[in-house]
Amino acid sequence: MFAIVRTGGKQYRVAAGDKIVVEKIDGDAGSSITLGDVLLAGEGSELKSTAGLTVAAEIIAQAKADKVIVFKKRRRQNYRRKNGHRQQHTILKIVSIGSSEKGAEKKAKTTKTAKPEGDAAPAAQA
């Protein structure tokens, strides 16, 4: 199963077991997070509903990207500026793609309450 998630203003296609590099997310190495902004999900060529779908991930490391050199120059003006920048990023390992725990609990509660009451009880409530 795969999913397309949005985090840090970018979109990533992920599957269970993938490692991705995203914009910095708060958290320590080893902690787990959930990515709730799922745009698309499917298996093979079949698409699935994204309602209540989340992606569970584990933070592997907080790191910095390679240095980018910013050099400005105006000719004949003796103007030269050199700056470097290293972007912060987070390395994630995708653990699983599935429904949220709250959504699964709601489904379990509704099926448990509906079965013992029978057909007459829901008609009385409506």
Score class of each variant (00 low, 15 high):
Phe71Val: 09
Arg13Gln: 09
Ser45Tyr: 03
Asp66His: 12
Ile33Tyr: 04
Glu105Ser: 10
Phe71Leu: 06
Arg80Asn: 04
Leu53Glu: 06
Val14Cys: 07
Ile91His: 02
Thr54Glu: 09
Ala57Lys: 00
Ala51Met: 04
Glu117Trp: 01
Arg13Trp: 02
Tyr79Asn: 04
Gln125Asn: 00
Val70Arg: 09
Arg80Gln: 05
Val5Thr: 08
Val68His: 13
Gly42Gln: 02
Val95Gly: 06
Leu92Glu: 03
Val55Tyr: 05
Gly103Ile: 02
Ala63Tyr: 06
Lys109Gly: 05
Leu53Met: 13
Lys48Ile: 01
Leu92Ser: 06
Arg75Ile: 08
Val38Tyr: 11
Ala56Tyr: 10
Lys109Asp: 06
Glu46Ala: 14
Asp37Gln: 13
Val22Thr: 06
Val70His: 09
Gly44Thr: 03
Ile4Leu: 01
Val5Ala: 03
Gln88Ile: 11
Tyr79Val: 02
Lys73His: 04
Gln77Pro: 01
Val5Tyr: 02
Leu53Ser: 09
Gly103Asn: 00
Glu43Tyr: 09
Val14Phe: 13
Glu58Asp: 03
Lys102Ile: 15
Val38Glu: 08
Arg6Phe: 12
Val38Cys: 13
Leu53Val: 10
Ile69Val: 13
Ser31Met: 02
Ser31Trp: 01
Lys93Cys: 04
Lys64His: 07
Val22Tyr: 08
Ile91Ala: 00
Val21His: 15
Ile60Glu: 12
Phe71Glu: 10
His89Asn: 09
Glu46Pro: 08
Glu117Val: 12
Leu92Asp: 05
Ala61Arg: 03
Leu92Trp: 14
Glu117Pro: 07
Asp119Arg: 13
Ala56Met: 08
Gly17Arg: 09
Ala104Lys: 09
Tyr79Gln: 09
Leu35Gly: 01
Gly8Trp: 14
Gly8Glu: 13
Lys19Ile: 14
Ala123Glu: 14
Ala126Asp: 03
Val68Cys: 02
Leu35Glu: 05
Gly84Glu: 15
Ala114Asp: 07
Lys10Asn: 15
Phe71Cys: 06
Asn83Tyr: 00
Asn78Gly: 03
Leu39Met: 14
Val68Lys: 14
Lys112His: 11
Ala3Trp: 06
Ala63Ile: 06
Arg13Val: 14
Gln11Leu: 12
Leu53Asn: 07
Lys67Ile: 00
Glu117Cys: 10
Ser100Gln: 02
Ser45Asp: 07
Thr50Val: 15
Ala16Trp: 02
Ala29Ile: 07
Glu117Met: 11
Pro116His: 14
Thr111Ser: 00
Gly8Tyr: 14
Ile33Cys: 05
Asp37Ile: 00
Ala114Val: 12
Ile91Thr: 15
Arg80Met: 01
Ile97Ala: 03
Glu23Asp: 12
His85Arg: 04
Arg76Asp: 11
Lys24Phe: 07
Val55Cys: 15
Ser96Arg: 15
Met1Glu: 01
Ala16Glu: 08
Ala61Lys: 04
Ala41Ser: 10
